[in-house]
Nucleic acid binder design. Sequence first.
RNA 1: GCCCCGGUGGUGUAGCGGCUAUCAUGCGGGCCUGUCGAGCCCGCGACCCGGGUUCAAAUCCCGGCCGGGGCGCCA
Length: 439
Amino acid sequence: MSIDLTRRVLSSQIDPEKMHDTEVVVAGWVEDVRVVGKILFAILRDREGRIQITVKKNESPKIYETLKSIHRESVIGVLGKVVKSDIARMGFEIVPKECVVYSYAHAPLPIGIIDKVHVELDTRLRHRVLDIRKDNVRAIFKIKATLVEGFRQSLRKRGFTEVHTSKIIAEGTEGGANLFEVKYFERVAYLAQSPQFYKQMMVGAGFERVYEVGMVYRAEPHNTTRHLNEYLSLDLEMGFINDEYDVMRLENEILIEMIDLINDENKRELKTLGVELPEVPERIPVIHFVEAMEILGYNEGEKLDLDPEDEKRLTEWSKEEHDSEFLFVDGYPLEKRPPYTMPDFERPGYSRGFDLLFRGMEVTTGGQRIHQYDLLVESYRRRGYDPRKFEFYFEVFKYGMPPHGGLAIGAERLLMKLLNLNNIREAMIFPRDRERLVP
RNA sequence: GCCCCGGUGGUGUAGCGGCUAUCAUGCGGGCCUGUCGAGCCCGCGACCCGGGUUCAAAUCCCGGCCGGGGCGCCA
């Protein structure tokens, strides 16, 4: 006895009006079995939703016994008739003719899928596959997929080429402090903390505009709700810009499009999560670092960077003053930015580097980059790096490099803030942090 | 790297020196022909590890491991 799974229909494809009394194949996970005397109801879950299988003992004693005996989350296939029904909440139910158990789930489950008890994040992450069976958890990753898709669509449309650069590297963009070491045959290599060098090199290689969607690695032993040791970086780099404002404007536009796409494609998931996405203003406000210091009430030069509390206060200010939950802060002090950052020659000590703050968190770092060979080499030297180690990177600057700039969006940070998640680990299928390496 | 807090059945918890360690969920069994947070009855199942204090430790102390949060740093 077998069931032809090529005939399988999904829960969402069953229209009780049109399909009443027709035979269908359905398959999925048995979320729950409710035995009510000589009748039982099995709730079957597939990727789209749920279907109720109704079995009467006197009509199908074998299927009744089978479904009564299996544990929750077992995988079954059912050949049965669609029966339109007013009593069933879904408007229909399946009365089975045949039922195959493909996989018997063990009991008890390490975490409940539909239990009404709270489960700690740590426990959920240890049993992530079961955790992701919950609609609200899967919704996060459906939305993440759209977020990335939106990034790709928006950039491709604007003449950007997707590139895939190596994650195994010889030298970090800013030295080796937060790099993971890997054994590379007889040498030491590192995991890339950013595709920064390579995407700039690709601008100079003639693509002019490139983007990359890829994992990056930070060996920081931090333990917070907003840090991961491996995260998805949405990177882009564009040539022939006037200044960093061109990059900020681009980000503004693509953010609008990314959020539009999610609103279009993930209505159900947003509803499941009870989330309404924020409005991205046509013009996200931009303030200079010096202005930020004034708003926060610091004296000039008192601080060279913003701490998490400052960032929270600044986005609160932006919400009040400009009705925007997004805020660009431009012109960070040069010494706090990486050595490839273009200095602001009109304001000595400051750079053309910016951050995008969203709901109290840094979600993007970007800026105009140095494109002049001598200036770049000097900048690295002044920071104490040995320019000889970066020759592979400097080469493109020696042989014709357009003025350019770019940015990197932390995908999980953006997603976390968009969906009001409490912990960035929730935005990663299998997060890597200080202790977690499995699953 | 630093600071604060925590670890009790599969899961989430109560208990915070002394009664058979609480409750929910789950799991097993029973009853029920319309359940959909099903209901009712019976049962099963736990004090992170090591050392110490004490007549007595889940409870107090020390160390370890693990977890949660914050800072630094960053996306």
